[in-house]
């Protein structure tokens, strides 16, 4: 990179490009600056080369901003930090525990009334209504079914999903459901395990019942603000 003998006419794109990348020796860079100051044509050449880099970076910006696909995160060995997610949902869990301790007034028995599993695995009206209208951490009771969404997330297909706890009579279930075609499709469902009146998640453990589904589904969090908007619109 000889620093001698350049003029505005003979300076090469290689030198201008190296200048933009900060790859010239200080004396060479100074020489380029001096030439550029004196020559409008050179200013334009430099600007064009600079634009090429700036626009190429801009072209990749959306990719950089988009969440890594679940498959890639799994391939990279990412493990979901349940403790963090659950800690953030501390209010929700406290509400769950309180619901159990206070004994939410429920009629009837069993999970049969929680979920109508015809048409595949879609939430029955009572659960669907609870998921539609209840913020994470709050509980609602409809038709003898208490529904407590724990947190919300977006899955790999972009669906809005919620992890929830639901009680009907003595049956306490936890699960995950995703909004699809105007319904809540159940993606995971299992009896919740209460230890001394508190659910296992309260200790920060992975919610076993939904962990497998979450590993498959989880793409991104749905923050409280977005959840509020979705709830206002019944998650439609």
């Amino acid at each position: 990179m000889a620093a001698t003998g350049w003029s505005a006419m003979t300076i090469s794109d290689d030198i201008l490009s190296a200048y933009l990348d900060g790859e010239l020796e200080p004396a060479e860079a100074e020489r380029v600056r001096t030439l550029v100051e004196r020559d409008a044509g050179l200013v334009e050449r430099l600007a064009r080369l600079e634009q090429a880099g700036v626009l190429t970076r801009a072209a990749f910006a959306p990719l950089m901003a988009s969440p890594a696909p679940h498959a890639l995160r799994v391939a990279s060995g990412e493990r979901f930090d349940w403790k963090r997610i659950v800690a953030r949902s501390a209010t929700a869990l406290a509400a769950c525990a309180a619901g159990i301790v206070l004994g939410v007034s429920l009629r009837g028995e069993g999970a049969g009334r929680l979920f109508a599993l015809d048409r595949g695995m879609l939430a029955a009206p009572a659960l669907a209504s609870g998921l539609d209208t209840t913020m994470s951490g709050a509980s609602s009771v409809r038709g003898g079914v208490a529904v407590t969404p724990v947190y919300s997330f977006r899955d790999v297909d972009g669906r809005a999903c919620r992890v929830f706890r639901s009680e009907a009579g003595a049956t306490v279930l936890e699960g995950a459901a995703c909004r699809e075609g105007g319904a809540w499709r159940i993606e995971a469902l299992a009896p919740a395990v209460a230890v001394e009146g508190r659910f296992s998640q309260a200790s920060g453990d992975e919610p076993a019942a939904v962990a497998g589904a979450m590993d498959r589904l989880w793409a991104d969090e749905i923050a409280a603000e977005e959840e509020a908007i979705l709830t206002d619109h019944d998650w439609r």
Partner: peptide
Amino acid sequence: VSRARASIARFVLGEAPHGGHG
């Protein structure tokens, strides 16, 4: 790098008004 930049600039911004690129 220089040729990549020049090629992208030509495609996005059109031919350089001053012709020769040194």
